[in-house]
Structures are given as structure tokens and as C-alpha cells.
């Protein structure tokens, strides 16, 4: 391959890696900032619940929460499937 285009490709790759790591780190910090905070979950089927956030797995498949206020009572410890969730909010 031509050296100049290879150089441009490398630069492009480095920029993309930089952007990806900045975005990922900011996201991870956001998840960390949620721990022990009261989080409101908007879920599919118009289900809205509140819980104290514990932790997320790194693939963002499950949220571990405590004191989950469901429409039928409080579940002390729970796992919420991220695919059931549309959005979640917390105060900062």
C-alpha cells in the first residue's frame, strides 16, 4: 500500500480510538456516579419504577439495584434487564 494513505489510515484509527475511549470512560464514570443514588426507570409496557442503583455489568445487560419499588410492592434486591429499560434518570 502507499505509505501516505497508510499514514492517514493510522491517524484516522488513532482518532477513532481516542474518541471511543473518551466516550466510554465518560459513560463508565456516569454509571459509577449512579451507585447509591435513587434512580427512576422508565421501562417498556409503561412500567415506571424507582430503586437505589447498585452496579451495572460492563456489557450493560443487567442493572443490580436495591429497594426496588414495583407496582406490587418493594423488592429488597433485584436485577433489572437493560433490555426492559427505555431510559433512566437520576438527580445530580
Amino acid at each position: 500500500s502507499i505509505p501516505t494513505s497508510a499514514g492517514a489510515d493510522t491517524e484516522q484509527l488513532l482518532e477513532e480510538q481516542h474518541a471511543r475511549s473518551v466516550l466510554r470512560e465518560r459513560f463508565l464514570r456516569c454509571l459509577l456516579a449512579m451507585s447509591n443514588k435513587k434512580v427512576h426507570f422508565r421501562m417498556h409496557e409503561k412500567v415506571n419504577v424507582e430503586a437505589t442503583f447498585g452496579a451495572s455489568d460492563i456489557d450493560v445487560l443487567n442493572f443490580q439495584v436495591s429497594d426496588l419499588h414495583t407496582p406490587i410492592g418493594v423488592q429488597k434486591e433485584a436485577l433489572i434487564r437493560c433490555h426492559d429499560v427505555i431510559s433512566l434518570t437520576f438527580e445530580v
Binding site: L28, L31, L32, S35, M43, H44, E45, V47, V49, G54, A55, S56, D57, I58, N62, Q64, V65, S66, L68, T70, Q75, E77, A78, L79, I80, R81, H83, D84
Partner: peptide, 26 residues
């Protein structure tokens, strides 16, 4: 990521959370 996953795993081991809802909404 390793630190975050460790916290998640440790919390799950300690607290034994169950899925809510039991059946996925979606």
C-alpha cells in the same frame, strides 16, 4: 471495566438479587 464488573459480581454474590420482572417485558 474490571473494577465495575467486580463490584457487580460481588454485589450479586452477596445480595442474591432476583430478576424483576420475572418474565422480560421485551
Amino acid at each position: 471495566e474490571a473494577a465495575m464488573q467486580l463490584t457487580f459480581d460481588r454485589n450479586c454474590d452477596r445480595k442474591q438479587p432476583k430478576y424483576w420482572p420475572v418474565i422480560p417485558l421485551k
